[in-house]
Simulated scan of single mutants.
Amino acid sequence: MSMYMPGATAVGITFDNGVVFASEKRIAYGNFLVSKTTKKTFSLTDQVGTAIAGLVADMQILVLQIKALAKIRKMELKRDIPPNSIAKMMSNLMYERRFFPLLTQVIVGGVVDKPAIYTLDPLGSVLPDEYAAVGTGAEMALGVLDQQYKPGMKEKEATDLAIKSIRAATMRDSFSGDGIDVLVITKEGTKEFTEKL
């Protein structure tokens, strides 16, 4: 059985002091370009973010539900929710919907104690990693990441590498393109910016 996954490319990288997420902005469905300005990187809490590839509606509903659940959990525990807990919340939500899955591939991560990222498939498997790529351009992005990632990178190096890997994917994947959204999360907080291709 093959599942139709709309195109996109998103990456996540850990560095010495936090995590960086990057994704391109194009939404294509078949050979039709639907949008050139779609956001696929999201801040979930002050210390946790996500980059997602897949169906936009599924992506948006997942982010809304997880943001709400994380807020409730934070009020219950009276402390920041670590990335592994948010990854588990996402996993549970996606697994509950396994017969009508959310057609998304997710990279979620952040920094509470130390930087961490996790990859989730549409059924909710949680795989920890130091860097990851999802979507139709993932192979091209991983080609760059595998070669150039090193543990303990500085923020600028990791950000530049994330942008470079998305650029590589957009050169060969017709479903990816139209600019790059970047989200950087450190203990000090989050910053977001957009890069042109």
Results as ranks from 00 to 15, higher is better:
66 I>D: 04
80 D>E: 14
52 I>V: 11
47 Q>M: 03
51 A>H: 06
61 I>L: 11
61 I>P: 00
64 L>R: 15
78 K>D: 13
55 L>S: 14
49 G>I: 03
68 A>G: 10
75 M>A: 12
68 A>N: 10
67 K>D: 05
58 D>S: 08
59 M>F: 10
54 G>Y: 03
52 I>F: 00
69 L>E: 15
48 V>G: 01
48 V>M: 02
57 A>M: 06
57 A>Q: 13
61 I>V: 12
44 L>A: 04
69 L>C: 03
46 D>F: 10
79 R>H: 11
51 A>E: 11
45 T>H: 03
73 R>Q: 14
54 G>I: 02
56 V>H: 05
62 L>N: 05
70 A>V: 11
75 M>R: 11
64 L>Q: 14
65 Q>K: 14
76 E>S: 13
46 D>I: 09
63 V>Y: 00
53 A>K: 01
46 D>E: 15
43 S>L: 14
59 M>R: 06
49 G>L: 01
58 D>W: 07
74 K>R: 14
74 K>N: 04
47 Q>H: 14
80 D>A: 04
71 K>H: 10
56 V>P: 00
45 T>W: 05
46 D>V: 03
51 A>F: 05
72 I>G: 05
75 M>H: 15
54 G>C: 09
69 L>G: 11
69 L>K: 15
56 V>W: 00
52 I>W: 00
50 T>L: 00
77 L>G: 01
62 L>Q: 04
51 A>G: 14
45 T>E: 07
71 K>L: 10
51 A>I: 11
66 I>S: 01
72 I>D: 13
72 I>V: 13
58 D>R: 06
66 I>N: 02
62 L>G: 01
67 K>G: 00
48 V>W: 05
43 S>K: 15
44 L>R: 10
58 D>V: 01
59 M>I: 02
73 R>L: 09
59 M>K: 08
72 I>P: 00
67 K>S: 12
64 L>F: 14
58 D>L: 01
66 I>Q: 06
80 D>S: 11
72 I>Y: 13
65 Q>S: 12
68 A>V: 12
68 A>W: 11
55 L>W: 09
76 E>Q: 12
61 I>R: 14
66 I>E: 03
56 V>Q: 09
47 Q>A: 07
44 L>F: 01
77 L>K: 10
44 L>S: 02
59 M>V: 03
52 I>P: 06
